[in-house]
Nucleic acid binder design. Structure first.
Lengths: 355, 355
DNA sequence: TTGCATTGCGAAACCGCTTTCGGATAGCGT
DNA sequence: ACGCTATCCGAAAGCGGTTTCGCAATGCAA
């Protein structure tokens, strides 16, 4: 079980057979007698033979590997989903013993170069990308390269490729409806730059739900900021400085929601009492925030598994357009969604009159 | 720039040269005239030639790839460091355009099988593993396989291989000293199962510091639990149920500390006021916990970079034993380390007298 | 016994690239 | 004119597998 890898050649010599025969025996070809097939397999086991994958893949013409491009984060806090996604992806791929290659790029340009190299050099048979922009250059490039891929998320036009996404529009309708049901009428939105499609989808859901509930879509209540906790904090401060501040806010991510809560607490207000907050991601950490964050939850490991399965199917020849999955997010109630607090509402109005 | 990859053969035909000549031109061999070398490189650029890596690696005899084994987590909350570590690893490897393979195993047995397959099949030229046990079977296996590797962490005897670790003993001495400096005399320890070397190291630091400060090492104040937030909560409850509970506690991870804080708050006590808490990891999220968690911080991306550099050096032939790095953790003060609170101390004593 | 299909394996070619080796051409001195 | 050394490139072999093809040995029927 130790030492240097053993090649097919020495295995064959050991058995008194030729290399191709042993190869076919191991791969269950019909033209090898059952007896020698068994003999070969037993010997392979005993010697601990493992086919050299570089040779095998060269011959097969496929790398049996897919690549994952780690998203470039503005804030380190946003990364917890990566490990779970990778785990799910790995599970799906390991069913066929494919490999998972992970890369990270510092700039968008780097990223495009990396993609081009990975596929043209035959390193990967498919790609998974996360968090696409509305019009994502990576997708165009990968399509040009005719490389199978799946997108974790969607772009503005997403009819001709495979994707797995959580329905952000639906989730924000759910979130807003929930808050309106708690008697809130001034519900704000804290979003990320709209170049990200997910940011746009969630904003759409927000606006749809606001209108559907007979409320006004007040542009002041829509704050777009950096996709980070700091961004959330800044956005929330803008909202609280409004003449007529919101009594509830929905945020495009838990991370931004954490920042928003910091801003709320900094003014002596209590998230979930004075201002309700709903995040998005359902991070486990939310249990430990102050107070525990209500959020729209989504299963990341499941996303990884689905993405892996879809990609393999497409590599096998499936039509990518047939593989489009929209998952619904679940409202995960913790402690930051509360009924409209009339007292703090008037306090706010009071403050408003004196500024 | 599009379509199917272009092979060396068609490049050569395009140039009216032979395959080996083109290959050597691209690889800067001296026996190729500068003029044809330039001509070849220009043509390669224009046609977007990329050497097929499977072929190249087969010929070279090295996969130019290293593998990372994702740790198996008892709790999904424990994963945030993975993304940063991978990012750092990727950076180090990309300097030589090596690849990073990531795998995940469900069981320890699976993990050993995966390791064995990865190295014997020539998929990776080296391995990185995280969080070793005191006597980790993975390390023995990898050594048997004669595969270069680096460990993120250490085992009980760690003289003969390469590792990068944060000095947990030192960190806990720092943490305990800090708390004692705040007048705490009953400082507890919340730890993970001692099969993990890091858990042992941190416990050692705790015990050393307690003794060095002239305090008694009280076995009741040492709680070992599952390495998760729930574990931390259970452990803290045990401590608070003690006849004479601690006024401060150090935890082997931020995650466990979050759980501990939940237990503290559940009793109407305030972390950092009634009971001080110091975590370990310095997670960004700690800013948003209730209250913000004081922690022993360590830079994970830096760890990844160093691990990558070390592994490459070892693959190049360096003596693994020469590559052993101990990083110091920094005390990151936030809000859970406070001076001994006499009021709550007596409250506790009061409670104690009446049970 | 001959004839014919089956069975079971070896021979050869190939995947795309690298590297060693040898030979043709050019450049130089004499 | 000759020989000699450099210079530059082509020929061939090899990395470790897979796959197509063909042939020898066996089985069976006639």
């Amino acid at each position: 079980m130790s030492g240097k890898p053993i090649s097919l050649k020495v295995l064959a010599a050991h058995l008194g057979l030729t290399v191709p025969t042993v190869s076919r025996a191991l791969n269950d070809y019909a033209d090898i007698s059952p007896s020698t097939r068994e003999r070969v397999k037993r010997a392979a086991d005993e010697l601990g033979y493992r086919a050299n994958q570089n040779a095998r893949r060269l011959s097969l013409g496929t790398p049996e590997t897919v690549g994952y491009l780690m998203p470039r984060f503005s804030s380190a806090i946003a990364q917890p989903f990566v490990a779970q996604l990778l785990q799910g992806l790995g599970e799906a791929l390991s069913k066929r013993s494919w490999d998972l290659l992970v890369t990270h790029a510092d700039s968008s340009k780097d990223e495009l170069n990396q993609i081009e190299r990975m596929v043209r050099s035959g390193r990967v048979a498919g790609l998974v990308i996360s968090r696409p922009l509305k019009n994502d250059p990576r997708i165009r490039l990968i399509q040009d390269l005719k490389c199978p891929f799946v997108v974790h998320g969607r772009t503005a036009s997403c009819d001709d490729y495979a994707w797995y996404d959580v329905d952000g529009e639906d989730a924000f309708i759910t979130a807003v409806n929930h808050l309106v049901g708690l008697a809130h009428s001034r519900v704000a939105f804290i979003g990320a730059p709209l170049q990200y499609q997910f940011a746009q989808d969630r904003l759409n859901g927000y606006q749809i739900a606001i209108s559907a509930n007979g409320l006004d879509v007040d542009a002041d209540l829509i704050q777009i900021a950096d996709f980070s906790d700091d961004g959330g904090e800044i956005a929330m401060n803008m909202l609280l400085d409004l003449p007529s501040p919101p009594t509830a806010v929905v945020c495009v991510s838990d991370t931004m929601a954490f920042g928003a809560m910091a801003a709320i607490r900094a003014r002596g207000l209590i998230p979930g009492v004075d201002v309700s907050v709903i995040g998005y991601d359902g991070l486990k950490f939310g249990i430990h925030s102050n107070p525990p964050l209500t959020s729209m939850a989504q299963p990341q490991a499941h996303a990884g598994r689905r993405l892996g399965d879809m990609l393999l199917a497409i590599i096998d020849g499936d039509d990518p357009a047939k593989h489009q999955e929209l998952q619904r997010a679940q409202l995960l109630r913790r402690k930051t969604d509360g009924p409209l607090n009339v007292a703090s509402h008037t306090t706010v109005s009071f403050r408003e009159e004196h500024t």
